[in-house]
Simulated scan of single mutants.
Amino acid sequence: MGAPLWFVSIAALLAFSAADVLDDCQLVGGDKKSAGEQAVLAKLAPLKGKRFEAKTKEGSDDYKYSFVVCGRLSNDSKSTNEGLVQSKEGSTDTSVIGRINDTHIISGTDWILLIYGSGDKYDNHCNSEARKAMVMISCSKKTLRGDFTVVQEERNKSRECFYLFEMDSSLACPPEESHLSVGSILLIVFAVLVAVYIVGGFLYQRFVVGAKGMEQFPNITFWQELGNLMADGCDFVCRSRPRTSDTAYRGVGDDQLAEEPEERDDHLLPM
């Protein structure tokens, strides 16, 4: 026996409602979606579901704006995919500024513009068209999620009115490309070869030859002789004084030890 018709209808209605409630941004573009927009949207994945709030004052009224990146502000069954909502302080009145099922996204070198459309309609402005939220995400390498602020509400036109917000994030920054010069590559290769030579030679000398102490260093005799030659060359080239100098005191030579001629005093004797 089949299920009652009313039960089938309620189940279908619940399934339709569940499918109509989103948990992610839905890009607008018909059957074909832009690969570029999808790539930019994927860049915002670390901010997905993050909640931001900003406050502003208009006359004597205080307003609070609540924003979620590609997520709904309310998770109950009455949610209408609201992604950015305006609420008045001290009042229960709220207005949906934009919904995530009507998402547009544009990017530049160091910025991303996230647009939520299909908000609640204006009462007396912009020919009662639907509200639209535009969030400008600017590059800031110092923070993943900066402050969310209100820039302006443009509602003095007859159409295409919008709310403009801004925030900083490193996700809007271009990727940093690292290019190694030829000299850097050669230095890296040389350093690797030296490391392999020292480690491999040490292991060979220790475990194969059985050397101990300084003898474990590969080709220790060659490097010692090379060091001595380099020291001699530096000593020869860099010294400004002669290596030997005359002594301050003259040595006693054989000529100084010769017997002095005998002094005769015969001329003093009386004749």
Results as ranks from 00 to 15, higher is better:
L114S: 01
V192C: 12
D266T: 06
V69Q: 01
V68N: 14
G83L: 00
T94S: 10
E53R: 08
P46I: 05
E89V: 10
G210N: 06
Y65T: 04
E154N: 09
V8K: 14
A258K: 15
G201M: 06
G200C: 05
L27N: 04
F236A: 13
F16R: 15
Y122V: 03
K48V: 00
K55I: 04
V40M: 04
S95I: 14
G146K: 08
S158A: 07
E89S: 07
H125E: 15
R243S: 14
N156K: 12
E37P: 01
D102P: 00
E160Q: 03
V182T: 13
R99Q: 13
R206N: 07
R250Q: 09
D266S: 07
F190S: 14
L257A: 07
M271I: 08
L73M: 07
Y116H: 10
R155P: 00
Y63N: 03
R250G: 07
S118C: 09
R206Y: 14
L73Y: 01
C234V: 14
V182F: 12
N81I: 03
K33Q: 09
S9K: 11
V196I: 14
S60R: 14
K132R: 15
L268I: 03
E89K: 07
G213S: 08
T103Q: 03
S158K: 11
I115N: 03
S181E: 05
D255P: 00
L41E: 04
S60M: 08
R264I: 05
E154Y: 11
V182W: 11
G119E: 03
L5V: 14
R155A: 10
M1Q: 09
N219G: 02
V237G: 05
Q205A: 02
N228H: 00
L257P: 03
E263A: 11
D255H: 09
Q224M: 03
P174G: 01
S128Q: 15
I106E: 10
S60G: 09
R159P: 00
S170L: 03
C70Q: 00
N156M: 09
K48L: 01
S9Q: 12
N219A: 08
A12F: 07
R264E: 09
P218K: 08
G213Q: 01
G30M: 02
L193M: 08
V96T: 10
L229V: 05
I105Y: 00
L187C: 14
I115G: 02
S95D: 13
V194G: 03
C139A: 01
K132Y: 00
L203N: 15
D265N: 15
E129L: 02
S87Q: 13
S87E: 15
K64P: 00
P46Y: 10
L14E: 09
S170G: 07
G59C: 04
Q86P: 02
T244H: 06
G36T: 06
E215W: 07
F67W: 06
H179P: 03
L5S: 13
E153Q: 13
F217A: 01
D76E: 11
Y249W: 11
V189I: 15
S74I: 09
E160R: 05
I115H: 02
V209H: 04
A54E: 11
Y163A: 02
K141M: 02
A231I: 11
C238Q: 08
H125K: 15
K121I: 06
G2D: 10
F67K: 00
